[in-house]
Design a protein around this nucleic acid. Sequence first.
RNA 1: GCGCCUGUAGCUCAGGGGAUAGAGCAACGGUUUCCUAAACCGUAGGUCGCAGGUUCGAAUCCUGCCAGGCGCACCA
Length: 672
Amino acid sequence: MLCFLRAMNILAEIRRRFAAALAELAQEEPPWTAAGESGMRDLVRQSQDAKFGDYQANLAMPLAKQLARPPRDVAAQIVAHLDVADLCHEPQIAGPGFINLTLRDDWLAARLGAAVSDARLGIAPAAKPRTFIVDYSAPNVAKPMHVGHIRSTVIGDSLYRTLKFLGHRAIGDNHIGDWGTQFGMIIHGYKHFLDKAAYERSHVDELARLYRLVNQLVDYHEGRARLPELEKRVAEAEQTVAGLRAAPPTGDAKADKKAAQILRRAEADLAAAKSDLAEMRRRLAAVEADARLARLARDHAGIAEAVLAETAKLHADDAENLALWRQFMPDCMAAIQHLYDRLGVRFDETLGESFYHDRLRKVVDDLVAKGLARESGGAMCVFLEETPAPMIVQKRDGAFLYATSDLATIQYRQERWQPDALLYVVDHRQSLHFQQLFAAARLWGYGHMEFAHISFGTVLGDDGRPFKTRSGDTVGLEGLLDEAVERAHAIVSANDDAKSDGPELTAADRKRIAQTVGIAALKYADLSQNRTSDYVFSYDKMLAMNGNTATYVQYAYARVRSIFRRGGVDVERLRADAAPILLDTPAERALAVALVQFAEALEAVLADYRPNQLTTYLFELANRYSTFFDQCPVLKAPSEELRTSRLLLCDLTARTLAQGLALLGIDVVEQM
RNA sequence: GCGCCUGUAGCUCAGGGGAUAGAGCAACGGUUUCCUAAACCGUAGGUCGCAGGUUCGAAUCCUGCCAGGCGCACCA
């Protein structure tokens, strides 16, 4: 019974049936042998259009080619050997040789009936569980988190949850930056610019202020130093452009086109150089316009070197700096923890750079001993076939790098967890680094692991440029959450006020709902995007009641709960009674098919580590529920049997939506 | 110069060898004595950047080009 109750997924089952049919044919007729081999299973899939049934097999056409026979004959022969009578109606052969399958309603109903009494909704855990380490979020804890951290955090968290739900062993690891120059900045700031009273009031706020101040002063001096270089770049670019413009046409169309292209690029370079220069001047002016800042800048001309010195002392185990680091860390951790609490994100491990610090020497020594790293230009390098540039594991000055620390991390994770796979949820700009890291790790003896860089694009503003505040600063994560919640509150309130029977929610309800809805909108907007592309950030779109948004899916859930409230339905008893499910109308059937395909959506997520496969599914399910809700009265169904059946469909829908959202790290609300 | 990613409806985006390319927004039209109309149903809108190639079949794979983004030895 259990195997029926939790058949992994229908598509996989149908593929097995086709494989069996092909194997049978291969035994009877040798020409079919090649046909039974690889590649055929992917040609069985969900139908894209309901009029072609629920599933379709497209394998007759390529086979017909191999066998040199008409494709419809080939399809007929496959169908003759195909045993799917328990799940599907008679297979239909259509068009050039498509085999269309329609699930039997009694089978659908039985399958849903089994899911009703199953806490896992009929989803079987993985037959072969694997151990995954999911490396996500990884902020620098010395500075406030910003919009740039949201994608890694949210995508990683969702993959982590999905892996666990499907029965894998997953370890969520937050590889925080807790040992870099940023701490040198705070230490330096603490020693020179501390406002004791402010620090007493709030450690976190004062440390953040010190970081910003020191960073600004370092930037200022760096900017001053770079100004001539930038000015020179602009002047050169201007000259280049002028020269190109002055060049007469050659008369040769191809050469002229090439020249025009070079000119366009030169103009783009000039524009970029000018904008960099303007930005730099703006920032310098901002410091100079502030008398206090200007004085600090004057008095601390060597601040960049001082910061580096503090960092170096920390790394050399200087007692004073180490003590300060230990003093600051709890406050820094508390600040990021506050955000993780708001987001509902957690980790099994939070091991940052400091944890690996004393392992780096040994990593380099081992790489050298194994002949994988050698000295080049004063630095210790691992040369790789995969990339033109080597991976540097130790700088000329003896310091170790990100790459060294990442290798040490792989080594540690192997010792600690023996993982099958390492997933790095990090933005696409670091793809070269990961290409090098993975290649080096394989050389180093970790070739048995699956390494995956789960890369993602940039969050853009509606101007198509990286999302910034109006003044050009990065957007803080805290403020981003506040605004999402605030806007959600306005929408929840307006909706509640507009209810025909008058408002139902207390002020406290509205606040609580706004929290959930606001955070959900933000996360879902990110997760519903194909992670490889950049996406344009918009509060209005993410909180829209229509379309592929968390709010729309949550609304479908709330409508189910509303029916149960109004009908005084005892859900436990409803489930226990095991009444039959009836699929009499197209809307009910469409909903039923979506419900039994949940497992397929989850598998699709893991196939390419893409949570947007799940959001697409949930949107489709919520959409079908909305149609059902519109067309099929539940509490006032024409018969008691139908009422019960529809209540069961509602219950399964609500549970599937809630479970799916939970795997995205999103909560549901009972009313909204 | 080399490498990676992206280019699909007016806008924001799905789809990544299968049948007539989808959704939301915006536009237009319809549906509330009935469980939340924050909804539902419909109409209109496309040279899937361009050109070749592979294939029974290409938005999807390959090559070249065009456009944009991002990287490219001692930052993380």
